[in-house]
């Protein structure tokens, strides 16, 4: 699936490049700025980034694909991350994962049909004292169970 960027989005990318290109080690801060703004990093951004930072397009692609955080496709309106790490496993994360997947009808790295939620695995949210934990966008939720999960999902779908 290819999604072309709008002129407005390309202008935004140019502005981020201008704002970041003189930073030492600029590539990660720049990619963060683009993703925070547009929601994902399109291959259309590779060429202008590579020119501004004196890198090859392959190097930019290499960095974007190395890090789990950067997404190469648009996400849903919300991103739900379910923790799969040991502490959460000790408190039933596996059952929670299965429940979330069946409720949403998607597997990891997929988006629900209504475009509301993209499901991602995560390996520790630093909320291990309140396992199992999930993160919806930038908010962490602890001691999750199916009931709390259902409330969180319906809230996200409504918003």
């Amino acid at each position: 699936m290819t999604t072309a960027l709008s002129t407005e989005e390309l202008t935004k990318i140019e502005a981020h490049i201008t704002a970041h290109k003189h930073m030492p080690g600029a590539l990660l801060p720049l990619l963060h700025a683009i993703q925070d703004d547009i929601g994902w990093i399109s291959e259309e951004a590779y060429l202008p980034i590579s020119k501004a930072l004196a890198l090859s397009v392959a190097e930019v692609h290499g960095v974007v694909t190395f890090y789990h955080h950067f997404r190469r496709h648009p996400a849903g309106r919300h991103v739900l991350q379910v923790c799969r790490a040991e502490s959460c496993q000790a408190m039933g994360a596996e059952k929670l994962e299965a429940h979330v997947k069946s409720t949403l009808g998607v597997d990891y790295h997929q988006t629900t049909k209504d475009g509301a939620i993209t499901l991602e695995p995560v390996y520790c949210l630093g909320n291990c004292a309140c396992s199992p934990a999930v993160m919806m966008d930038d908010e962490v939720y602890g001691r999750m169970d199916n009931q709390k999960m259902a409330e969180l999902i319906s809230e996200a779908r409504g918003a």
């Binding site: 790490a85 040991e86 630093g126 909320n127 291990c128």
Partner: peptide, 11 residues
């Protein structure tokens, strides 16, 4: 980059 499961003291 406190990525270890079971740790949150840095956070």
């Amino acid at each position: 980059d406190e990525g270890d499961s079971g740790t949150y003291s840095d956070r």
